[in-house]
Write a protein that binds this DNA or RNA. Sequence first.
DNA 1: TTGAAAGCGCTAACAC
DNA 2: GTGTTAGCGCTTTCAA
Lengths: 326, 326
Amino acid sequence: MTTVGRMAGVSQVTVSRALSDPDKVSPDTLRRIREAIEATGYVPNAVAGALASRRSRLITALVPSITNIVYSSLLHGFAEIMRQHGYQIMTSEIGFDPAREQETIIAHLSRRPDGILLTGIHHTPEARRMLIGSGIPVVEIWDISETPIDCCVGFSHAEVGRQVAEFAVGAGYAQAATVTAGDIRAQRRRDSFIDRYQALTGSKVTRIDYPAGTATLGQGRDALAALIDRQGFAAGVVFCSSDQFAHGILTEATTRGLDVPGRIAVIGFGDQVFAARTHPAMTTIRVDRDALGKEAANALLQRFRDDAVGPASIDVGFSLIRRESA
Amino acid sequence: MTTVGRMAGVSQVTVSRALSDPDKVSPDTLRRIREAIEATGYVPNAVAGALASRRSRLITALVPSITNIVYSSLLHGFAEIMRQHGYQIMTSEIGFDPAREQETIIAHLSRRPDGILLTGIHHTPEARRMLIGSGIPVVEIWDISETPIDCCVGFSHAEVGRQVAEFAVGAGYAQAATVTAGDIRAQRRRDSFIDRYQALTGSKVTRIDYPAGTATLGQGRDALAALIDRQGFAAGVVFCSSDQFAHGILTEATTRGLDVPGRIAVIGFGDQVFAARTHPAMTTIRVDRDALGKEAANALLQRFRDDAVGPASIDVGFSLIRRESA
DNA sequence: TTGAAAGCGCTAACAC
DNA sequence: GTGTTAGCGCTTTCAA
């Protein structure tokens, strides 16, 4: 900046002003500064800027996985809004390990971000304490809580399970099964599905549970095979924790020549882009992830404006999209 | 740090040393400093550290899209290695717009990252100039070049097209078609497939081209419908630019009761996790994206150690995985 | 409209 | 083993 200033015949501060608030600099000076920047190829140092201004224009995000479309599409919507407002996003994957989350939070806090995005509402007490202590605005997404750290935007996973159970019972399926990934929120949907289904029908729900990690079509196929071949699940509805699983069930059913939904009915979760075009088309739960991410970005931006705002919990809801598979 | 030092009865510098190089501090002092850190909940300020040391421990990455599994799995492998070495990753999506790439590069450069990851080898001359001028190590991935900015790790997309064409001709398919997304590298695979196929057989290849954006199963289905219903493609092999498209072709063929690969043969690209379990199992091109990402991370880490290294181009290759669909 | 001075919270170099 | 000093490249405040 000093060099640019010297070339333009002004001081370093004037260059700073020309960049951050051009209106405060005379048109002529501005022009000379711009020429000098052009000539030198000067690129401002945001690190120094952040240190001096205590604003980093950096948002950090913690998600379980970036290869899982659920989280990456959330981030996509979030980042798009943030980018439009001049913020950049630093993302870390934390899997489903609370210890790793806490460790990562410390690393993120050290970057002095202007805001932090967290996935889910369950964090270690220590992590929660540090976050609150930092004074940095935090938005928790993909779930809702009565007591967010700061604010949260998501929906009730328990409510999803309940509504799916009620739909399944209403549709009159004789038996029910679940195929669930090792994700705390997926488990919450499963548990409330089972509770509600059993309360309504009195009949037991067969469960297939997978360990943590991204759900795959192959696992869905294997699950249906296990259900039929080893668990005596002859016919009924299968509620999956993701569309991938559901797609696998569909694939396996097709391969075996089983009628869907006559023999095996399938309900997915996510309404991913392929769900409307599977054969047969998939019945699933839609959550507008892109909109959810954008909503989260706006919640944070709101907090940057007036910091007097109290805790807020935004429920974006979900909807059951009935297609052909159930 | 000053506060922590005061509590531990040492100066601020000693605290800095205790954090960055604990061996240089006496065990007793170290203990007192650790207690003081614990008591105050002190979190180091990496912004100030980066400014003073000129090392940010930040790597920035530019990818076309984070919701596309191809790029997110690349980043996953890359970030994992980088994290193990104490680096964090800031990612931006740039779509397929060179102007946006250039704009984003400036924003990234201003953060003074220790390294930059770029997708592809085609950048504006201006972007290239700025990158070189910055002196920051750059790794370009997912393609290879004789003249990388700094180093690159990828494979030859033209070679993929050629090999697929040779495979298709060898398998004796009567006609060939391509379904391609609006991605420069996908187009390169398509073009070299067509060139080679026509050179070998003299027969024309039918093309379906989609605009930029993530490829979907639905588009694959629509493509096969268009091929059969409107382009007079009665039988033959279809080379897709992604497994999503190929999965769609498979789905549409199944829906229409067409024999695969007898009537319609399908070749995908990517060997995504579902490819081995589709019905029928998909023939596709495998690129070990996780390994590629890791290789890219190692290339950058190598450059952090000795900066005397010259340009390097690492070809990680690919392989045609023959399953049932072709 | 512009500039001078101070300082953001650290690290690097050197002294003790 | 520990402390002192001098910045890193900006923004902020205040003065002109």
